[in-house]
């Protein structure tokens, strides 16, 4: 714990209490954030000292979209930074534990924080989209379109913002000139589709044989459940197969 003690020494030299302000984690109190002191302490990157070497640190669930939709924009803005600080802290602790060959307690906290951040971002984008659709008739996000790529396959193209129109943008045009020989593209497309078809057929065959295996092992199986799980397999055809050898059923 050499780094920890060093860090602790640093924080003492600042002479500020830290963790009282770091009380809000992945689920945080919006009212408390507004009272957060402005601290520039290095120890904010580390967990509460009580949790050092703990086997488990309990935490609640992540913020769901429905929880966030009822919060005002300033609240979400503050919550974002609380989550960001918590994520930084957890990543630091994870790295520190790795360096010291120790077990990082409750790694699911990281997933809870990241899930909350994703949900928060989605809620903010939802609000912005609603404004832009109402005011300007567009979603107001980076536009995307599906284009045919250099391999002759459809791919998503994210548009970028430029200060000059594309007709006079020679550099951009140069970047777009990655093209293959059309004969090669045609040949590639044919082989690609063939590979896809073979893979699909193999998967179907595998499912078909698996269903026969199930029928052979479980003669009293619920057929509706089987149909639900393997909708593409023709069960009558499977039963007509020579591989179908169900064991005799003795009713008692």
């Amino acid at each position: 714990m050499a780094n920890f003690t060093k860090a602790l020494h640093l924080s003492k030299s600042y002479g500020k209490s830290l963790f009282s302000t770091l009380r809000n984690g992945h689920i945080c109190n919006s009212r408390m954030i507004s009272t957060t002191l402005y601290l520039r302490d290095f120890m904010a990157f580390f967990d509460d000292k009580k949790n050092w070497g703990a086997t488990e640190v309990k935490s609640g669930r992540s913020w769901q979209k429905d929880d966030l939709r009822i919060k005002s924009n300033p609240d979400l803005h503050k919550l974002w930074y609380v989550l960001l600080k918590e994520r930084n802290m957890l990543l630091t602790m994870e790295q520190e534990c790795k360096e010291q060959m120790k077990l990082f307690p409750s790694p699911e906290r990281l997933d809870k924080v990241e899930e909350s951040m994703e949900n928060l971002e989605e809620v903010v984008r939802e609000r912005n989209r609603a404004y832009h659709e109402l005011e300007r008739g567009e979603i107001g996000e980076q536009p995307k379109e599906t284009i045919i790529g250099p391999f002759g396959l459809p791919e998503e193209y994210k548009m970028t913002e430029h200060s000059i129109p594309k007709e006079i943008n020679a550099e951009w045009y140069k970047q777009q000139q990655i093209k293959c020989d059309p004969r090669d593209v045609a040949e590639f497309g044919r082989k690609y589709r063939e590979k896809e078809f073979i893979e699909k057929r193999r998967q179907h065959k595998r499912d078909f044989n698996h269903v026969i295996g199930l029928l052979n092992r479980f003669p009293k199986m619920d057929m509706e459940a089987l149909k639900e799980q393997y909708p593409d397999v023709d069960i009558e055809k499977a039963k007509a197969s020579r591989k179908y050898k169900p064991p005799p059923v003795f009713d008692d």
Binding site: R23, N24, G25, H26, I27, C28, N29, S30, R31, K58, S59, G60, D67, R69, I70, K71, S72, N73, D75, L76, H77, E86, V124, R127, N128, Y131, H132, L134, E135, G140
Partner: peptide
């Protein structure tokens, strides 16, 4: 509740007020 949790009442509190503004 754990020390870093938000209370259930605070989670349920509605602070959103619709306005014609982006975030």
């Amino acid at each position: 509740e754990q020390p870093k949790d938000t209370g259930a009442n605070e989670v349920a509190e509605i602070t959103f007020e619709p306005a014609l503004k982006t975030f």
